[in-house]
């Protein structure tokens, strides 16, 4: 039996908004520690790893491991019916054929209850070795989102060049080119505005702008984004949840 109560439906709303355009079908693996998802987009370029730990819930219990095979578009339709400020409880029996979602309005005692049919989703699970990264950038997620949107107007490829104290986003297209350079700095009042760069080795990697613009749909989830890069390896873009994370592993583009 799974019973997980969010204080606000907004958290799951933001998570679904961040994932639904990249992956259509997901297995939500529910254990006593929380809910985890691993899914790969249709082009097999972007791997998404979600962990919503029990600490993200007001109340959480899952006394037997349950797999919820969910069609993201249908889940999104139901989530949109609830108010972001409603409490949201997820309920499922052991070996369930449906997921129940209960929205409770804190004030007017209005209760909306939905049942979402589950699907049998056969998904391969990729093992992601913990790896040492050559560079780690912590920066405001809104700033990263703007850079990805702006650079995409110029080209379908975005180059990321990191030296000891700056990150350069570079885009070269048919009608022109552009670049944005950000430097390390600490904002003592508003720490979420800070930019922190940790560099072991210089980085020069290119990624698909389309995928970066899928990744930045996570921006409402967290004020900062952590970007971890290693030469010739997928980049990791991580958005922290109250307890857990939403991670995107993006395969790079190589010079022909």
């Amino acid at each position: 039996m799974l019973e997980g109560k969010f204080d606000e439906a907004s958290l799951l709303k933001k998570v679904i908004d961040a994932m639904k355009d990249s992956v259509k079908l997901c297995n939500f693996n529910c254990t006593e520690n929380g809910i985890s998802v691993q899914a790969i987009d249709d082009s097999r370029v972007l791997l998404i790893s979600l962990l919503i730990e029990a600490g993200s819930f007001e109340d959480y219990r899952c006394d037997r491991n349950i797999v919820l095979g969910l069609e993201m578009e249908s889940l999104n339709k139901i989530i949109k019916n609830g108010n972001a400020s409603d409490m949201l409880t997820l309920v499922a029996e052991d070996s369930p054929d449906a997921l129940n979602l209960i929205f409770e309005d804190k004030r007017r005692d209005r209760i909306a209850e939905y049942s979402l049919k589950l699907m049998d989703i056969d998904q391969d699970f990729l093992k992601i070795e913990d790896m040492k990264f050559d560079a780690v950038v912590n920066m405001p997620s809104a700033e990263f989102a703007k850079i990805c949107r702006d650079m995409k107007t110029l080209s379908e490829s975005l180059q990321i060049i990191i030296t000891k104290d700056s990150v350069k986003f570079n885009s070269e297209g048919d009608f022109g080119s552009g670049s944005v350079v950000i430097k390390s700095f600490t904002d003592l009042e508003k720490t979420e505005e800070s930019v922190r760069i940790t560099l072991e080795k210089p980085i020069n990697l290119t990624f698909g702008a389309k995928y970066l613009n899928d990744i930045i749909k996570s921006t409402p989830l967290a004020s900062q984004v952590t970007i971890k890069l290693c030469d010739k390896q997928p980049a990791l873009f991580e958005y922290q949840l109250p307890s857990g994370y939403l991670r995107f592993y993006l395969a790079p583009k190589f010079e022909d």
Partner: peptide, 14 residues
């Protein structure tokens, strides 16, 4: 010109 590679090139099936 740059060529996109897929994620399976880096991570193996469990």
């Amino acid at each position: 010109e740059t060529r996109q590679v897929i994620i399976d090139k880096f991570y193996s099936d469990e």
